[in-house]
């Protein structure tokens, strides 16, 4: 989200250099297998998505997907290395081959897909920019925010979205520029701004840290599309396929009711798609260049999409996000995987 322009410039110039000086090495899959460790480009800390625990073990929604990839490729979800990167260095780290795959709550945009020369592989989290206000203001809709002071991270697309939205609705606002989420929190709690705006997941995470979370509401309006998904480098289609289908495998597993707990039992299911997914029938694994039980390993070690969601950012966690757009298509959400066939 932060300083997307700068990040873009750095990444594009790096790509320009890349195209001049390097040639593609062996396939990423072979590299990872030889190394025995999957290197994921992750963030330096986003609540619920990536953070180190007490003993320095990385956890979170993005990290679990990274572990799922490792489970599929190497058969062991522990064999990951978190390559920490900021919003500005994430694409260069990937393109400079310091990481194998990017799982770092990254919004898919045209310029990143085309300009930065990345391959995006589906949307594992649908986010969007929202507003949070104190209940005592009595505001029920973002349309009532005329004249409000708003805490906003400078130099981000959220800033542009905000300006567009207020302009389109003929409203005025007073921007309170802030740099980080923590700073926004202090300013908002201290009453320096009436409203805090950022991605809805970020709002929920921030609200969960208040001493009085129930006194604050997130307004229903979502004013931008922030589809977050994994990315890989251009030029390695096999590797791209693997990352794509790791994500689809978790969604398919949820759709078919395959969970971490019942995956062994499901191996004797009657549903041919489940059998194909778990490698009992068909040769999906082999076609990807992986072992037969690649998806079985994902579900056994990490779980299906719903389990990953609930464990890290779901209603029962301090972050407390409901599935919303990220529910399965069968339940009115947008999570949809092509058939395993």
């Amino acid at each position: 989200m932060k300083n997307r322009l700068l990040e873009f410039v750095v990444a594009v110039s790096a790509v320009a250099l890349l195209s001049v000086t390097t040639t593609a090495g062996a396939g990423t899959l072979e590299d990872v297998k030889k190394r025995g460790v999957l290197r994921c480009v992750v963030s330096t800390g986003v609540a619920g998505f990536a953070y180190p625990d007490k003993s320095g073990v990385w956890k979170g929604f993005d990290i679990d997907f990274c572990r799922a990839t490792a489970a599929a490729v190497l058969g062991d979800s522990k064999k990951i290395k978190a390559v920490t990167s900021t919003g500005k260095t994430r694409f260069t780290k990937l393109n400079a081959n310091e990481g194998d795959v990017l799982w770092r709550n990254t919004t898919i945009t045209f310029s990143r897909d085309v300009g930065v020369k990345l391959r995006f592989h589906g949307v594992n989290y649908y986010d969007g920019q929202g507003f949070m206000v104190n209940k005592k203001l009595g505001v029920k809709s973002a349309k009532e925010l005329n004249g409000a002071s708003i805490c906003i991270q400078t130099g981000t697309t959220t800033e542009l979205n905000l300006a567009d939205y207020f302009h389109a609705n003929g409203m005025k606002y007073e921007a309170v520029p802030i740099e980080t989420n923590d700073e926004a929190r202090q300013n908002y709690v201290g009453g320096r701004c009436d409203v805090y705006t950022t991605d809805a997941s970020g709002l929920a995470a921030t609200r969960s840290t208040f001493s009085d979370p129930n006194n604050h509401i997130i307004l229903p309006e979502i004013i931008s599309k922030e589809p977050l998904g994994p990315a890989t480098r251009h030029g390695d289609d096999q590797w791209s396929d693997i990352v794509t289908w790791v994500y689809y495998a978790t969604v398919t597993a949820e759709e078919k009711g395959v969970t971490q707990a019942n995956v062994d039992k499901m191996k004797s299911s009657k549903d041919p798609e489940i059998l194909r997914l778990l490698g009992v029938e068909g040769a999906q694994g082999k076609e990807l260049g992986l072992s037969k039980d690649w998806a079985y390993n994902i579900i056994k070690q990490i779980g299906n999409y719903g389990e990953i969601f609930e464990r890290n950012i779901g209603v029962k966690t301090p972050i407390g996000l409901s599935r919303g757009l990220n529910d399965l298509w069968t339940r009115g959400g947008l999570q949809y995987a092509p058939p395993f066939r």
């Binding site: 330096t44 609540a47 619920g48 180190p52 979170g60 920490t84 900021t86 780290k93 995470a205 301090p318």
Partner: peptide, 27 residues
């Protein structure tokens, strides 16, 4: 070095603040 993704004390602090169990203790 935080800006290039290396976790010095400041980076560790920020990353730790992303842990929902503790988040909010920036001061």
């Amino acid at each position: 070095v935080l800006i290039i993704g290396m976790l010095d004390p400041l980076g560790i602090g920020r990353a730790s603040l992303a842990d929902a169990v503790w988040a909010g203790l920036a001061r």
